[in-house]
């Protein structure tokens, strides 16, 4: 279903949602754009570059209690959640959840993730001002894609919004609101969409990645490409599709929390053995997991082109260029060590 809403009507929709659901939306929190629980329409940002943290934090939280133990009894965390809406999700982030589903909702379902997914509606906002670091169009997505959302809001500018449902729940939200969408509105929408897509200059050729990665596993290229890397966790943590975690016991609770393959102790065993000790190996693993192994196992790349890795890298590593420049032919093996 498609409907045309004015800004006031959209605000009314949001206000209505706030009464019924816990609403999470992008706000400016001391200079950081973050998705946070909101209670007032005025708090919500309308025109914003994508949030610092991806919405994965509401499904795979940075820290999550799996269960507690009290006097020898295991008490599972309360999984029931009030119905919630994440408002203003960008298409890239919405798509990332479909990729995470492949990991957490496979044959061994992760109940913590599943319950959060089940109780969350995604209301997306199309992206009219992509950043230089964005490259969603290279990964089967785009600034106006509705994949993974219940409802997509396309900003037609001048205070008019085209809303398009993408699920029965989304359709329910739209019913009886705004007015019908006519051909002219559709044309305007297409125009804006195409204009935005043209703004995304960063274009990758993913069709070549798999073969190049397969050939280049031992390439000296990785030694060079990884040199600037400082092995922090920013690109991993802020990536909407990175999902590696650690589990530990902390003060009567078993918690799971974000972890990343860039850290030297990620694969370090108690015996001291560490198959990916070197910076080059850790740097490389990220690419191989996202663009090699995940593709082989699930048929898609584990990347949505949101550009957060590029924007937030402390030493400005151009992650998409690292991929693009992967040599087509296998190179001489890298030096040992």
């Amino acid at each position: 279903m498609k409907r045309l809403l004015k800004k006031e009507e959209l605000n009314r929709l949001l206000l209505g949602l706030m009464k019924e659901y816990d609403v999470i939306a992008p706000i400016d929190e001391e200079g950081l754009i973050l998705f946070r629980p909101v209670t007032k329409v005025e708090q919500v940002l309308w025109d914003y570059p994508n949030s610092l943290k991806p919405v994965k934090e509401f499904f795979l939280p940075p820290r999550e209690v799996l269960f507690q133990f009290k006097r020898g009894k295991v008490q599972p965390a309360n999984l029931s959640l009030k119905k919630r809406v994440i408002w203003g999700v960008r298409p890239c982030d919405a798509r990332s959840l479909l990729l995470l589903d492949k990991v957490f909702l496979d044959s061994t379902q992760d109940v913590y993730y599943r319950e959060k997914r089940k109780s969350t509606l995604l209301v997306g906002l199309s992206c009219n001002h992509p950043e230089k670091s964005c490259f969603c169009t290279s990964f089967a997505s785009g600034p106006h894609h509705k994949e993974g959302m219940d409802l997509l809001i396309a900003d037609l500018e001048e205070g008019i919004f085209l809303l398009e449902s993408n699920s029965p729940e989304g359709e329910q939200l739209l019913k009886g609101r705004g007015k019908e969408v006519n051909k002219i509105d559709e044309k305007i929408r297409t125009k804006i969409k195409e204009k935005t897509e043209r703004k995304i200059e960063r274009k990758l050729k993913p069709s070549q990645f798999l073969e190049r990665l397969t050939n280049g596993f031992d390439s000296s290229y990785w030694e060079k490409a990884s040199r600037q890397c400082i092995s922090c966790g920013i690109c991993r943590y802020l990536c909407p599709t990175c999902h590696c975690f650690d589990i530990a016991d902390e003060e009567g609770e078993r918690v799971r929390f974000w972890d990343g393959c860039s850290f030297r102790n990620f694969t370090k065993m108690t015996s001291g053995e560490n198959p990916r000790f070197g910076k080059r190996e850790r740097f490389k693993q990220w690419y191989y997991h996202k663009f090699g192994y995940f593709k082989e196992n699930h048929g898609v790349f584990l990347c949505v082109g949101c550009g957060r890795c590029l924007r937030n890298c402390p030493v400005k590593i151009d992650f998409s260029e690292v991929l693009q420049q992967l040599p087509a032919q296998a190179q001489t093996p890298a030096r040992e060590g």
């Binding site: 940075p62 092995s231 922090c232 966790g233 943590y237 850290f263 030493v315």
Partner: peptide
């Protein structure tokens, strides 16, 4: 803090081969 350890990793003087956080 999200414990990305960028502060430690970028610091020339944080060179411990095993950080106390590890």
């Amino acid at each position: 803090c999200i414990r990305c350890y960028a502060c430690r990793q970028v610091c020339p003087l944080c060179y411990c081969s095993e950080c106390i956080s590890e």
